[in-house]
Design a protein around this nucleic acid. Structure first.
Lengths: 109, 109
DNA sequence: CCCATGTGCAACTCTGGGGTTGCAGATTGA
DNA sequence: TCAATCTGCAACCCCAGAGTTGCACATGGG
């Protein structure tokens, strides 16, 4: 039943959108950035970026810190790492399944 | 720029939907199953299942094989495995980034 | 203080896609 | 052959969410 953790669903949902993946790229490259600055690098408005950042933050992939009148966002690795491990585990499980089925098919005729 | 491979986007998009994740679970558990059989295990119609299977197949996560009048679907591990590796690599990259930033902050400030 | 700049909130549009229904086209078994 | 069963196609509904616009609210600098 693959530990259907809500976290995993949130991360996958967050990563499913190409704009959000680009945002993550930009954040990794810059280390830190505000929504306004990020919007300058993308073909969407600041408000759209803000919404995307909210989704990413809910998934634990980024975190925003208020500094004066601006909010600086930066990337958070653990949530992504956890999901990567979950997927790798799932892939391994599938592989075992496929091996078992193949073995049964070969021995059983 | 994190190898923005279309494949990765397809897999992430496919995995983002909870019904599709359940379908994969069912397929792993059963080894093989038809859309009709799978629909019997879910609170959706056969047609919905068919659409989901089409998405999963386009992402390379499942494959359908025609046997007589039915189509038997089964899971394919490689695409999932590749995406898992992509994510793990991304997580590692982020970690390195964060370490670098932290080091700079400590030495410089 | 006043203005520039950046964030926050709300209402709105519109497309994608998850889901359904209905029916036509295969295939098997009696 | 004929009925039962399964797949395939097409049209349709509906809503979540990606994106926009407009304006009000904070904050920092001159």
């Amino acid at each position: 039943m693959t530990t259907e953790d809500t976290r995993v669903g949130d991360v996958l949902g967050a990563l499913a959108d190409p704009t959000r993946r680009r945002l993550l790229d930009l954040l990794v490259a810059r280390g830190e950035a505000t929504a306004t600055a990020l919007a300058g690098q993308l073909p969407v408005t600041r408000q759209a970026v803000v919404k995307h950042l909210a989704v990413l933050e809910a998934a634990g992939l980024v975190a925003g810190e208020r500094v004066g009148r601006e909010v600086r966002y930066s990337v958070r690795a653990p949530a992504l790492d956890a999901t990567a491990r979950w997927m790798a585990g799932l892939a391994a499980q599938w592989d075992r399944r496929l091996q078992t089925i193949k073995r049964i098919a070969e021995s059983g005729g």
